[in-house]
């Protein structure tokens, strides 16, 4: 079985803080990590490989330093990696990104299963998985937390929904987006990591020409949506500080609640 895993290098957003003076994001010293959901996709792929045998190719799009994320994937047991990196890819929305990934997957050729994380923690869109599936014209199942069985031409999975879960059979090839509930990702093995750093390491870098796309189809130029403004979240509240001792404060508060017919 041929498995493609899509992954993204992201800033560790749990560490992102606002500068209290300027209101801007403080980015210095924020580490780059493999997107958490994607680690579960890698783990799922490696688990399938260990069970039934598979060849795993990891695919990512990003700046040259995103090769670190692919090295980590290699350390976990991925066989080959491809980084899509080109200035032309920058500023892409999900329309342009899914198109670019789709073209790269067409170039990779044969595959039975594409696995990716449900969403990336920097954008939180959860759109890339379904849109890559659409580009390739294959079915998708999102929010997968268990692969139950691989059949001859299909696969049975469990999909998380708000009320519980669905058991779904999908034909193959198919794309699955997975959630954290699926598994516990293993740590990269040091010898694999070292191999990934060697010169002959099977990490390829492809640019726009390599996958046969023009600059107007990808990146900012190939995007439909643009960020037109960013701002710190704010609220327009009365913000009244209630004075006095506890008894008085609570009395005032209840007065306010009564005034507004809340109690």
């Amino acid at each position: 079985m041929n498995i493609i895993v899509l992954l993204k290098q992201v800033p560790n957003t749990t560490e992102v803080k606002l500068d209290p003076k300027t209101g801007n994001l403080i980015r210095e010293g924020i580490e780059s990590i493999v997107n958490p959901d994607d680690l579960h996709a890698i783990e799922a792929a490696v688990a399938l490989k260990e069970k039934d045998g598979a060849k795993i190719t990891a695919l990512s799009m990003g700046p040259p330093q995103a090769i670190d994320a692919l090295s980590e994937a290699m350390g976990m047991g991925v066989d080959e990696s491809i980084l899509l990196s080109d200035k032309a890819f920058a500023g892409a929305d999900t329309w342009a990104t899914s198109f670019t990934l789709g073209k790269a997957i067409e170039k990779i050729g044969e595959f039975d299963l594409i696995l990716c994380g449900r969403q990336a923690i920097d954008g939180d869109t959860a759109q890339i998985g379904p849109q890559v599936a659409e580009c390739l014209g294959i079915p998708q199942v999102s929010y997968v937390f268990e692969i139950e069985e691989i059949e001859k031409n299909g696969i049975i999975v469990k999909r998380r929904i708000e009320e519980g879960f669905e058991r779904i059979r999908t034909s193959m090839p198919a794309l699955l987006t997975v959630i954290g509930e699926m598994n516990t990702p293993r740590y990269p093995v040091v010898s694999n990591l070292l191999d990934a750093c060697r010169e002959k390491a099977p990490i390829k870098v492809w640019n726009a020409a390599d996958i046969g796309v023009t600059t107007s189809e990808v990146g900012l130029e190939g995007s439909f949506t643009n960020v037109i403004k960013t701002f710190a979240p704010k609220s327009g509240r009365a913000g009244e500080v209630l004075e006095g001792d506890t008894k008085t404060q609570v009395k005032t508060l209840i007065g306010k609640l009564k005034e507004n017919l809340l109690v």
């Binding site: 869109t125 659409e134 999909r159």
Partner: peptide, 21 residues
């Protein structure tokens, strides 16, 4: 869950951009 499964697929199909959440 269903909306975020469906919307990206429809957007791609009808040739349009999409903003999440």
């Amino acid at each position: 869950h269903n909306g975020r499964d469906l919307a990206p697929r429809v957007a791609r199909r009808v040739g349009s951009g999409l903003t999440a959440d």
